[in-house]
Design a protein around this nucleic acid. Structure first.
Length: 914
RNA sequence: GGGCUCUUAGCUCAGUUGGUUAGAGCGCUACCUUGACAUGGUAGAGGUCGUAGGUUCGAGUCCUAUAGAGCCCACCA
């Protein structure tokens, strides 16, 4: 069968099998009461996204789990979909509008949204198409989008329910405002970075005396919006000043000195300027102050910036319409000129930046919608603490706990157009309306009229909801929630969530909260009530993936240009090679330094597997592939056959265990070592003698049949990792019949009772002998073409019998032409020798032996053994070791000492003989 | 300021509950195109497991301190 190519060609194979699987519906998850479900929901990639190495890792892991469980007989569903990504998508479309010389305001809301949908239709599926190249076995017919009709309904339902439970409220608060995106963002969307700045000390004169107060600030421009100066009430230095008034420089306003406990007397001067409209802490000070004064004396926050962070009309004319940083320069200059600037000291402070556009965030007072998180967090915390949901690696529990116990309310409104519109209407009222019906109307559907006054003049809230407000429903909204669907009953809760630790707060925590909050009223598959926590958490296991970095350890980023394009990598190395490499490189919970060349490892491995298959098929070429019969495993089996079966079963057992424990990179190592080192390096070499030689046909057939059987089963073990290659090989090995596929074959469990330790021990003895001969050949530069003979001497005659029985192995693996016993004492003349378990082996090298090389070789070995001998005897001379260590260990050490001793003796006599 | 992780061969990393003088891949050296595979084979060189203490009969593995690298959280102006 010379038509099988010498190297594996992934491109051709991949493009053939993916449509094959899909067309036969293997990816589909169907409600099937006869089977246990196994469900994964994909972390929905942004529609603006393109595939990154992070996605590759993430989705390969999910596919490994899904394919493994599918083959194990679970009814698997891998639910795919995409996220509408509010700000990101709106930005992309706005940019293209700007290129066209227009903008969204010119276009108007409705037309703009039409444009975004158009964009989505055109480009929103890019990442999904790329994902398919990886071989992901998602149920594509179920693909969902966070803005599709069903999911939008889920969002509205959730909003209304939480509002009715008073867990959603609206209020004027300081939020993180992005002056570039013109929207509020949540606390988690702010990145803090250190920045070299100044601390400006400013003098505020008292109104009725020559004294003054000095405040320190990093944002001097905000002084234009100051409404007070605060001191700690217990600060003796300033107690007499409380209640007195200051003249605010650069303005004609007077502000009071007030007391507040939050002021740290030790910081700066111990006096703080209070700008309630532009600083979250100052806002709280203002609120506390207002609680204790009558209405007439309330402090009113003064907003001095507009939504672009330019100064507004609330500041003196001179400073109006300035960007905040220009305003800062102007204010500092005038303070200095006016003698108000006491000093300027260099200062490093943290500034918050928008996670999208890196613009410095402005704390901004505005009306926003919030979710009250504390009541939701409680349960969500305990299901993780009590193990109902498990994290892998476990240490993320701590991070989770910390966040959940310090959780703050979630600002969910965004001043964007692209997103789920807040399902709230306000009665604008009409002439007939005499009522103060400013109450928001929160409804699942647009109300026809105001329930208070009957006016039909209603206006919907302009804001949309944070993208995560749809994502946190993902595990159940994709299954049909809020409707009670068969899918939901059967597939919920999902099993494993695979995601990056960077979104543990954004997404993982919130999904847990949402699931616990609303899924309790969905009946279970048998119609019963979901009473247990296990049945209402959105998933049972969370696998936190590694973060992929470049070879220098930097995070992959667009701006650095260091993110490889996985589609290119697939083209160059193949999808299986990429999948295997990335999983092999990514231990649970550790970052991964990745570069494309590393895929050579996976490619070489794929090629190795390919060629092992090629070898088997070439041998089957003449006679055909023998059938697998019940007798086959043991028919005409010799050492190598029994050994590979034993190794195969322990590999299958270990692999399943590793996957159960989510040790996916360990699982890939187990496969790599078995295939390459056990199967190819040893076993294939050892069967060659019987395949090429003149073994009786029934022996040859048994040997070949068994080799192919083990190989086929190994393809199944490999399939979750390398789906394309294994399908191709599995299909090539024998005719399978229409619609059959390795991906729906049974995943091998491995049989512990077939793990044969006696055979493994015998094999390792043979391997040791062969390695010793190879070492002699290599070190003494015996040409590979030169055949050698072997002389052996063992205390136990059965050992020599074993070697002679397997002379064929020695011929093939060490080019040994014959084995004879050497019973006389001493070593044969002109020979090199090695000590092996229970005896010695010699290689006569008449005329070839280099005495000094042989001496060096033996001396090295002797040194090695002597070192171990010394170590062991030291241990045994230590009375407390013999006394305290377990008997078994002590016996072991004693046996070792004996064997080191005899080995040394033999090596020494060899040296003397030279 | 709090929390977490990492430090093992030139490079990238494994090393399960403490028990032989520590492994892999890549790279390096030598040899080999033998009838699966040069994307291969065989042999070899290369490590006082960051440092200092401690627990233990025994520590890469457990504890403490310390140095370096990185990440996350935090309203000190």
């Amino acid at each position: 069968m010379s038509e099988i190519p010498k190297t594996y060609n992934p491109a051709e194979v991949e493009e053939r099998w993916y449509p094959f699987w899909e067309a036969r519906g293997f990816f589909k998850g169907r409600v099937n009461p006869g089977k246990k479900p196994y469900t994964i929901v994909i972390p929905p990639p942004n529609i603006t996204g393109i595939l990154t190495m992070g996605h590759v890792l993430n989705n390969t892991i999910q596919d490994v789990f899904i394919r493994w469980r599918r083959m194990q007989g679970y009814e698997t569903l891998w639910m795919p979909g995409t996220d509408h990504a509010g700000i990101a998508t709106q930005n992309v479309v706005e940019k293209s509008l700007i290129r066209e010389g227009t903008n969204r305001h010119e276009l108007g809301r409705e037309k703009f949204l039409a444009r975004v949908w158009e964009w989505k239709k055109e480009y929103g599926g890019t990442i999904i198409r790329q994902l398919r190249r990886l071989g992901t076995s998602c149920d594509w017919e179920r693909e969902r989008f966070t803005m599709d009709e069903g999911l939008s309904r889920a969002v509205q339902e959730m909003f209304v329910r939480l509002y009715e439970k008073k867990l959603i409220y609206r209020g004027k608060y300081i939020v993180n405002w992005c002056p570039k995106d013109h929207t509020a963002i949540s606390d988690d969307e702010v990145n803090h970075t250190e920045q070299q700045s100044n601390l400006w000390h400013i003098r505020y004169p008292l109104v009725d005396s020559e004294e003054w107060a000095v405040v320190a600030t990093t944002r001097p421009e905000t002084m234009l919006g100051d409404t007070a100066v605060a001191v700690n009430p217990s600060d003796e230095r300033y107690r007499h000043l409380i209640g007195r008034r200051l003249r605010l420089p650069l303005t004609d306003r007077e502000i009071p000195i007030i007391a507040d406990d939050s002021v740290d007397a030790a910081f700066g001067t111990g006096m703080v300027k209070v700008t309630p409209a532009h600083d979250p802490n100052d806002f709280l000070i203002c609120q506390r102050y207002n609680e204790n004064v009558d209405t007439a004396h309330r402090m009113v926050p003064i907003t001095i910036l507009d939504t672009s962070a330019r100064t507004n009309d609330a500041v003196p004319e001179k400073y109006r319409s300035l960007d905040r940083f220009d305003a800062r320069k102007a204010v500092v200059a005038d303070l200095e000129a006016g003698g108000f600037l006491v000093k300027t000291e260099p200062y490093t402070n943290n500034v918050g930046r928008c996670y999208r556009c890196d613009t410095v965030i402005e704390p901004y007072l505005s009306d926003q919608w919030f979710v009250k998180m504390k009541p939701l967090a409680q349960e969500a915390l305990s299901v993780v603490q009590d193990g109902t949901i498990r994290f892998y690696p476990e240490r993320w529990v701590k991070t989770y706990e910390h966040w959940m116990t310090n959780i703050r309310d979630w600002c969910i409104s965004r001043q964007l157009w692209w997103g789920h519109r807040v399902p709230v209407w306000y009665c604008v009222g009409d002439d007939a309306c005499k009522l103060e019906c400013r109450e928001p109307i929160v409804a699942r559907r647009a109300p026809a009229s105001c329930p208070h006054c009957g006016s039909t003049n209603l206006r919907q809230d302009e804001d949309v909801l944070d993208t995560w407000f749809s994502s946190w429903l993902w595990p159940f909204s994709t299954l049909g929630w809020p409707d009670d669907t068969k899918d939901l009953r059967y597939f919920y809760p999902t099993d494993t969530l695979v995601t990056g630790p960077d979104i543990i707060f954004f997404w993982v925590a919130r999904m847990i909260m949402a699931g616990l909050e609303v899924t309790g009223d969905i009946p279970a598959a048998d119609g019963s009530r979901r009473a247990s926590r296990e049945s209402i958490v959105p998933f049972r296991h969370v696998y936190f993936t590694s973060i992929i970095r470049d070879a220098q350890g930097r995070k992959m980023s667009k701006s650095l240009g260091n993110s490889p394009d996985p589609v290119e990598v697939i083209r160059e190395y193949g999808a299986d090679a990429l999948r295997f490499t990335i999983v092999y490189l990514a231990p649970l919970g550790q970052d991964v330094l990745y570069s494309n060349e590393k895929c050579e490892m996976g490619r070489n491995f794929a090629n190795k597997i390919w060629n092992a298959g090629r070898f088997l098929l070439m041998n089957a070429g003449e006679t055909g592939v023998p059938d697998v019969t019940p007798e086959l495993p043991d028919a005409h089996a010799d050492l190598a056959d029994r050994w590979i079966l034993s190794r195969y079963h322990s590999t299958a057992v270990a692999l399943n265990e590793a996957l159960e424990k989510f040790e996916i990179n360990n699982a890939s190592k187990i496969l790599y070592d078995f295939v390459w080192h056990d199967f190819c390096d040893w076993y294939v070499e050892m069967v060659k003698g019987r395949l090429y030689g003149d073994a009786p046909p029934e022996v040859r057939s048994a040997v070949l049949g068994r080799a192919i059987m083990v190989y086929e089963e190994t393809m199944k073990l490999l399939h979750p990792f390398m789906p394309f290659l294994t399908e191709e090989l599995w299909q090539n090995l024998r005719p399978r019949g229409e619609g059959r596929s390795i991906m729906v074959s049974e995943f091998p469990k491995g049989d512990r009772s077939r793990i044969d330790t006696a055979t493994e021990a015998e094999m390792s003895f043979v391997q040791d002998c062969i390695n010793s001969i190879r070492n002699i050949r290599g070190e003494l530069s015996v040409p590979p073409s030169k055949e050698i003979s072997l002389l052996v001497r063992f205390d136990d005659p059965s050992a020599s019998a074993v070697l002679m029985k397997y002379e064929g192995y020695f011929r093939r693996l060490a080019r040994v032409s014959g084995i004879r016993e050497h019973l006389s004492p001493g070593k044969p003349p002109q020979s090199a020798g090695a000590v092996v378990r229970g005896g010695e082996i010699f290689v006569p090298l008449e005329g070839l032996i280099d005495l000094s090389a042989e001496r060096a070789r033996i001396e090295k070995e002797l040194n090695h053994v002597a070192g171990m001998f010394e170590n062991t005897s030291k241990k045994l001379l230590n009375a407390s070791f013999v006394e305290k260590a377990p008997q078994q260990i002590v016996d072991q050490e004693r046996a070792k000492l004996e064997s080191f001793k005899t080995t040394m003796e033999k090596l020494r006599s060899s040296l003397e003989a030279l």
